[in-house]
Design a protein around this nucleic acid. Structure first.
Lengths: 243, 243
DNA sequence: TAGTGGTCTAGACCACGGG
DNA sequence: CCGTGGTCTAGACCACTAT
């Protein structure tokens, strides 16, 4: 036999073939690709199978589908990248480094109205404010300043964060529906410089993250890294597997 | 009639319903969700329709599907964010700002072996090296230092980049299969500080991007922004539409 | 208006892997 | 082993839209 079975599903093969044609330039942006019934004939399968493949490509933004007109190669992707913003401890251990953390301060307080406005929370809301230093290979690696909204996460009031840093604890205990990340470059202020063992005014990479659960803020955190000891890396492949 | 027609497809409704159950905590991480045949009965549709909905959720990482066992709510998402890294001009104009750019230098040269190694290219390869200043509302907004591999993009040799900045031109003319982004905080060196009208040593947010087409480097670029005039913003919703 | 994609069905066979 | 999800079929009707 020439065919030794088909390890790959047909829809996946169609997907890959079409992708390859687009990536190698055979099918240019804006150009129409074969109709579903044409691919159906070419691959000797049913239209549902072709449809599944093309729908997937459309979801990924590789093609645009238009009724009555056909499917077209999409214009080149807008620059878009997926950054994995990992938990610091997990990432460090995965890379074979030592990891430790210290809670520098932790207290329950009521939110200042100005700060409340800034982070889209109710004024005078009860929060747990804490500062945590992340240490990798015995060097300071990041300073975390966090607010946890106690009405959204009442359990946090009694948590000591002795075994897990606040970020990991929250990830495990609190579901969230939306997050917003901002990455900035800032100059280290005096306190930050001292904590991170770096010169005052030196560049830092700061990640701030606000997390919501159904419109309600759960936590707001700013994580400041020494500019010379950290960077964010993101990868993007237009044809990354989704199936 | 109580039913006024069904604007939403059934598979989409199933998708949204399951998502809602997960997000509001009714179905906890690790818990099994109903079998396909159960949902089939609940929604009075065929298994294919249920399967389409659940496959989509599995692709998005909301659920894990296991043969013989069922489908399970996935553990809370790893921190992951999608950053739209837009073309500077497009973003500026969209936000209602003026945009202009200046090509400060541009020349064809052979790649230094050390630099070639650093960016994963062949030594002594011909490249177009150029420097471009992006100006928003008449203030310097970013300094772009770019290498374009001339064997991958021969057309670039004769391009003057008078009407379009190099990034936009490449996006339109060159398909790419993979990109890697790195975001760093760096101190402005003398030349950068001068170009960007900022103090030497002040923090800058630097994005470097390397783009490949089938294993071959197409371009390498470093875009340096004044720390006080730029930030990256990323949003992530676990239940973001894919269909 | 006619041709395309969008959706759906009621079956089917198979592979995987938990029990 | 055997129930589950993975895949596929050969139809069908409908909505949209380009012409």
């Amino acid at each position: 036999m020439t065919e030794t079975g088909r390890p790959k599903p047909i829809h996946q093969r169609i997907c890959e073939d079409v992708e390859a044609r687009i990536m190698d330039g055979s099918w240019q942006p804006g150009q129409r690709i074969p109709f579903e019934y044409e691919l159906e004939a070419e691959y000797g399968c049913s239209r549902m199978t072709v449809n599944k493949a093309l729908s997937l490509l459309a979801n990924r933004g590789m093609i645009i589908r238009k009724r009555r007109a056909g499917s077209f190669v999409a214009q080149p992707q807008i620059e878009r990248t997926v950054m994995e913003i990992q938990d610091i401890g997990t990432a460090a251990k995965a890379a074979g480094h030592d990891y430790a953390f210290e809670i520098h301060s932790m207290k329950v307080e009521r939110l200042d109205p100005a700060e409340a406005t800034r982070i889209d929370a109710k004024p005078r809301q009860e929060v747990l404010r804490l500062t945590c230093l992340h240490i990798v290979d015995e060097r300071p690696h990041a300073l975390e300043e966090r607010l946890i909204m106690l009405d959204a996460v009442p359990r946090a009031r009694f948590e000591t964060f002795e075994t897990k840093p606040p970020g990991s604890w929250l990830l495990e205990h609190v579901p969230w529906s939306e997050a917003r990340h901002v990455i900035r470059a800032v100059a280290a202020d005096a306190a930050t410089a001292r904590a991170l063992d770096m010169p005052k005014g030196a560049p830092c990479l700061m990640l701030s993250r606000q997390t919501w659960q159904n419109q309600r803020t759960v936590t707001y955190v700013e994580i400041t890294h020494p500019g010379d000891r950290y960077q964010f890396i993101g990868h993007f492949q237009p044809l990354k597997s989704t199936m």
